[in-house]
């Protein structure tokens, strides 16, 4: 009640994927950025890539998402490669996140930060559909000064959070979609969702947020991942 779980990013993404927020066949992206954001000092920006939140599933005939470990593993590799390539063109150095020792104080601090980001990003996503009156025409979200420890630890200027959910219809599901069309019912097929947030590590402000949702594209292939990452990062303000 004090902290409703419905606003977590993952939950919203499930709803998006379940077809509640209908999207056209082509990929749609939706960029939000902080109005008064000015990039940090000249020189290549150092971007810390936070742990990837990626899950690929198979959509069974019954409409259940069956997670696929093999596809997810491949997709994560593709995402890292595609990110490095996309940011190279943007005068940016990508730094990988080195996880602190298990059960250490540092690990707890990082966990809190990841959970806070998840909650804030979920709220941003919800607001992009139905904005609170206090948030209309504003983009002023933050994770607070707790991010400064990351700035020092990783010697980075920004942190980049990436999330992907993707599902592919199984053979049975495709058959069901065809049958549904025959009897006039719409059976949602697989859907892709991705989001990216860029956090300024000087003070924790989320300076840019983008999400894309598409019924096309297959994150199991490096080409599709490159396309998805490129459209996700098009207007990255670096």
């Amino acid at each position: 009640m004090l902290m409703p779980p419905s606003f977590r990013l993952g939950t919203l993404v499930t709803l998006v994927l379940a077809g509640l927020i209908a999207t056209a066949g082509c990929a749609q992206t939706s960029v939000l950025r902080k109005a008064d954001f000015a990039p940090q000092a000249p020189g290549p920006a150092r971007v810390l890539l936070m742990p990837l939140d990626v899950e690929l599933s198979e959509l069974t005939a019954g409409g259940m998402l069956e997670p696929r470990a093999d596809w997810t593993d491949q997709a994560k590799t593709h995402v890292r490669v595609a990110l490095a390539a996309a940011l190279q063109g943007k005068h940016t150095a990508l730094i990988s996140y080195s996880p602190p020792a298990r059960d250490s104080e540092q690990a707890k601090v990082d966990q809190q930060l990841l959970m806070l980001h998840d909650l804030v990003a979920g709220t941003i996503l919800l607001n992009s559909f139905v904005a609170l009156p206090t948030k209309k025409g504003r983009f002023d979200w933050s994770l607070g000064e707790g991010v400064k420890q990351l700035q020092e630890r990783a010697n980075a200027d920004y942190a980049l959070f990436i999330l992907f959910r993707d599902s592919y219809a199984s053979g049975g599901r495709v058959a069901l979609m065809v049958a549904g069309a025959l009897v006039g019912a719409i059976v949602p097929g697989g859907r892709q969702f991705g989001s990216a947030s860029l956090v300024d590590l000087r003070g924790g402000d989320i300076v840019w947020f983008n999400h894309l949702s598409s019924e096309a594209g297959d994150l199991r292939t490096p080409e599709a991942v490159r396309t998805a990452i490129e459209s996700l990062l098009t207007e990255l303000p670096l």
Binding site: L2, S6, F7, L119, T123, L132, T134, K135, W141
Partner: peptide
Amino acid sequence: WTVDGNGLQA
């Protein structure tokens, strides 16, 4: 009442 969203502060 909330400013940023009731999951964040209320």
